[in-house]
């Protein structure tokens, strides 16, 4: 036992550092989750009291008056998101297919890179672009221009999700289809994309959820509206815009409505994601891998 050797026991300082680091990591995890729980708690506590029939069916009252609701904003958000999905989902899936099935080259790398760049462009900048591309030529704010802005924002998320999911489809599956004499386009759509569908749909929903609450790009595209509007070429209210306007207003009743609107918005986002999760998992065949 007297031969010189490495220390037999882990030193006190090393143990102390280890314990300290562990404590810090645990504390960080807790500290990050506290705001999340706080935000959800406040949304429910402050919002639920103001969600009533009038809130869901009426349009806003003039400033300072008590009552009214956000019916037009809920519908407006629906319209804008529909336009956004019509633009963003096909283009996103299309470019995702390109990246996965054709994009093993310089141009593919360029598109992949641009998609990532587009993903990082601040939403307010996309708003400016949609303003000058759609609002200025049309000469007025519109639901359509808001949809364009949000649609553009959906593309990179959908594209990268589609690419990733398609790359996860084993090549042997494609070979099986080619081996049956199925052309490439058919193989891609009916075999590869179908195999990857659950992931692609999840990606689309994430993109959808991400833009559903977007406000900045709508400020000068959809613009907001105190009244009903179902036309694509007219200024339209949106939940997120309404929450913003009410939150920075000086009226107590509007503050309450802002919380209610925020609650509806988050329920919409979480609900949309959950709904798709459930339907895709139910539609899947049992025993599938």
């Amino acid at each position: 036992m007297s031969a010189p050797s490495a220390p037999q026991q882990v030193g006190l300082i090393r143990r102390f550092t280890n314990a300290g680091a562990t404590t810090f990591a645990v504390a960080a995890a807790i500290l990050v989750l506290v705001p999340l729980l706080a935000i959800f708690a406040y949304l429910v506590i402050k919002g639920i009291g103001s969600v009533n029939w009038a809130f869901l069916t009426q349009t806003p009252k003039p400033p300072g008056e008590v009552g009214g609701g956000m019916a037009n904003a809920i519908v407006g958000t629906g319209i804008i998101l529909a336009v956004a999905s019509v633009i963003g989902v096909p283009l996103g899936i299309g470019s995702g297919i390109y990246l996965a099935e054709y994009g093993r080259n310089r141009f593919g790398d360029l598109v992949r890179f641009t998609a990532d760049v587009l993903n990082g462009v601040p939403s307010i900048v996309i708003g400016i672009a949609a303003y000058s591309l759609v609002v200025v030529p049309q000469k007025h704010f519109s639901a359509f221009s808001g949809g364009v802005a949000l649609g553009i924002m959906m593309i990179p998320t959908v594209a990268r999700a589609t690419e990733e999911m398609l790359l996860m489809v084993p090549n042997v599956i494609r070979e099986a289809a080619y081996g049956l004499g199925i052309p490439k386009w058919r193989t891609t759509l009916s075999i590869s994309l179908r195999t990857a569908s659950a992931g692609v749909i999840t990606g689309c929903m994430l993109a959808f959820a991400r833009v559903a609450g977007e406000t900045a790009p709508l400020l000068f595209t959809a613009f907001g509206n105190q009244f009903w509007n179902l036309k694509l070429n007219q200024p339209t209210a949106a939940l997120s815009l309404q929450v913003f306007t009410y939150a920075i207003s000086p009226y107590d009743d509007w503050h309450k409505q802002a919380w209610a609107g925020a609650l509806i918005l988050i329920v919409l986002i979480v609900g949309a994601v959950a709904a798709v999760r459930i339907t895709t998992s139910r539609g899947m065949l049992k025993g599938g891998s």
Partner: peptide
């Protein structure tokens, strides 16, 4: 027709 080394049924079908 071709049969591959690893069985490769279409998983979602």
């Amino acid at each position: 027709g071709m049969v591959f080394q690893k069985p490769n049924p279409f998983p979602t079908m």
